[in-house]
Design a protein around this nucleic acid. Structure first.
Lengths: 196, 196
DNA sequence: GTCTATAATCGGATAGAC
DNA sequence: GTCTATCCGATTATAGAC
């Protein structure tokens, strides 16, 4: 890996672990094993490096999700596969994490990849859910946009809860609960007052 | 409000807005309108202040949730009221936010209130869901712990998505989606293959 | 209790030699 | 392209006067 790539890679890791404010140019250089001068030769400064790192992480997140979504199987299969996908729950989401960084959110350039990634993801999931509704896999009353938003929120919130508990199992439990609701293993009782 | 309280209040605000790493003693003093010497008289340092602030926020979050949970109405009513509660979605959760702060999570004292708050919240919701299952409001197949975890995750993840989108509506949409799944307005089709 | 002074270290760069 | 030197403000305190 060349110098430039090592810097991007190091920045991605540090943004993931410590956020933008918690990441210093010096720490980036040390982890990349690159000198001060080198870093400022390849990038104009911290925010320039962060832009490269964030864009890379966003693209990777999108590409890997898309691979699961375009896989074979029923709609429910593909959504289940995405929700259950292997993840390091205690590390959190490298993109979602950035929403807590005021300096990232305040800079339109840095913020853009974050915004676009979640807009794309939610939209893609909503499309799948709409397909499932059309083909009879899912209840016609299901609201694709709202449901997609809820599912993405479960994933993002699952990271929060897993980190709070210090246990990756909590993320899996959140996903399990969401799938239970989606696939009808857990819902308002058929004898409940809201049933029609 | 006395000096000590102003310092705690100022620290709570800053931790909420900028996190632990992004909050300097100087900024705390300025917002509280308290001098350097005063701050170090009342608190041993930044982490001591943070502990007071975090404990306060955690207790407040817990108390206000408990008020909704112990309210009158059906289980589904109370859960709905909690999920739909007025919130400043773009500001995020003052407690959940701290899970992204490595310095907070690395310090057992600072971390404890965060961990306990979410453990309590999830447990409390699971109890309500179990009650709803018992009294026939909810499907007997519903897994109370997993569902409770998913619901709390929707709230926490909703903040992430709202901030990413720059719109509080996204949080409301996530909640709407989750309630649709929980109350049976949106789920796997009755004619779907998983139906028994 | 509050104020000012002092200080060591870090953060985020710029400048110029090689 | 990479290195070292230098810079200035911020961070997180401590010390002692008032």
């Amino acid at each position: 890996m060349d110098t430039r790539e090592r810097l991007i890679s190091s920045t991605r890791e540090l943004l993931w672990e410590r956020g933008y404010t918690g990441t210093s140019p010096k720490a980036i250089q040390e982890r990349a094993d690159v000198g001060q001068g080198s870093m400022y030769h390849h990038f104009r400064g911290k925010s320039d490096l962060a832009l490269a790192a964030i864009s890379r992480s966003a693209r990777e997140m999108r590409d890997s999700a898309d691979a699961v979504f375009t896989d074979t199987g029923t709609v429910v299969d593909r959504i289940t596969a995405y929700l259950r996908r292997d993840r390091d729950a205690l590390k959190g989401c490298p993109v979602g994490r950035l929403t807590q960084d005021p300096d990232v959110m305040a800079d339109p350039e840095l913020r853009r990849p974050v915004e676009e990634t979640f807009a794309w993801l939610t939209d893609r999931l909503a499309g799948l859910l709409a397909d499932g509704r059309t083909n009879g896999e899912l209840d016609p009353r299901l609201d694709p946009e709202a449901t997609a938003t809820a599912l993405v929120a479960v994933l993002q919130g699952g990271y929060v809860l897993a980190r709070a508990a210090g246990s990756a199992d909590v993320h899996a439990r959140a996903v399990h609960g969401a799938l239970g609701l989606l696939t009808g293993d857990a819902r308002r009782s058929p004898s409940g007052q809201e049933n029609r």
